[in-house]
Computed example of a mutant assay.
Amino acid sequence: MGLAILFAVFSFKNMFDARYMIPVAGFLAGSMIESNSKSLETYYSGLKNHNAIYYYLLGNGATHGQAVNYFVKRALEKNMIPMLGKMAYILLGVTPMILWSMILSGTGVVDAVFMQILMLSAMLAAAPVSLLITLAVARAYSFDAYGQLKNMDKIA
């Protein structure tokens, strides 16, 4: 996602310049790490404490993916709600300082403003995408080959 942002703003001329790459990587990593940790906690605690719902859905003919989607949906909700609040903070508190520092480092005003707009939209888009990837990896460790929940005390 970060490379796409850098390519959209700067094409290939200065794409890997540290003054552009460091803010992009910092914004995206900072926005994803906190929300992913809260979402994973919701996912695992849901599987641990409400595993009867998972088995109930399986018993009533749901596939493994359909039964797990309930917990994935809850994790996505836990991911996006704080993300919107964080966006307001970043828009009002952090963005003007980053914009000013980019202009002082030699970036053109139009490039800096365009990059800030792209960064805000990338942060909002990258959080659920990274969570879905994280949950796909976590699903491999939560269930055995037969679709049975592993011992959640060892996982969470």
Rank of each mutant, 00 (worst) to 15 (best):
M1C: 13
G2R: 13
L3A: 05
A4D: 12
A4R: 13
A4Y: 12
L6T: 04
F7K: 09
F10L: 11
S11G: 01
K13L: 13
K13P: 06
M15V: 12
M15S: 09
A18T: 12
A18W: 11
R19F: 09
R19N: 15
R19W: 13
R19E: 15
Y20E: 04
M21Q: 13
M21F: 10
I22M: 11
I22G: 00
I22R: 09
P23N: 06
A25K: 06
G26E: 11
F27V: 06
L28D: 01
L28H: 03
S31D: 14
S31C: 10
S31P: 02
S31I: 08
S31K: 06
M32K: 05
M32L: 15
M32I: 14
I33S: 09
I33P: 00
S35H: 03
S35M: 08
S37D: 15
S37L: 12
K38F: 14
E41A: 14
E41H: 11
T42E: 08
T42M: 00
Y43W: 01
Y44L: 14
Y44A: 08
S45A: 13
L47W: 00
H50M: 06
H50L: 03
N51K: 08
N51W: 15
N51S: 15
A52T: 05
I53S: 02
I53F: 07
Y54C: 02
L58C: 09
L58P: 03
G61C: 04
G61V: 03
A62H: 01
A62E: 13
T63G: 06
T63V: 02
Q66K: 12
V68F: 02
N69V: 10
Y70E: 02
V72P: 00
K73G: 15
K73H: 14
K73N: 14
K73I: 13
A75M: 04
A75F: 12
L76W: 13
K78I: 10
N79M: 11
M80E: 01
P82F: 00
P82I: 00
M83E: 05
M83H: 10
M87C: 10
M87G: 06
A88P: 02
A88H: 07
L91S: 10
L92D: 04
G93N: 04
G93S: 10
T95D: 08
T95M: 08
P96L: 10
M97Y: 08
M97Q: 06
I98D: 03
L99M: 07
W100K: 01
S101R: 08
M102L: 12
I103C: 08
L104V: 15
S105N: 13
S105E: 07
S105R: 11
G106A: 09
T107V: 12
G108T: 15
V109S: 03
V109C: 11
V110H: 05
A112E: 05
A112S: 14
V113P: 02
V113N: 03
M115P: 04
M115Y: 08
Q116D: 03
L118T: 07
M119W: 03
L120T: 06
S121R: 09
S121C: 10
L124Y: 14
A126F: 05
A127Q: 10
P128G: 14
P128C: 11
P128D: 07
V129Y: 13
T134Q: 04
L135S: 01
V137P: 02
F143P: 01
F143G: 03
F143T: 05
D144Q: 12
D144R: 09
D144K: 05
D144W: 01
A145C: 00
G147F: 00
K150N: 09
N151G: 02
N151S: 02
D153C: 07
K154R: 12
I155A: 13
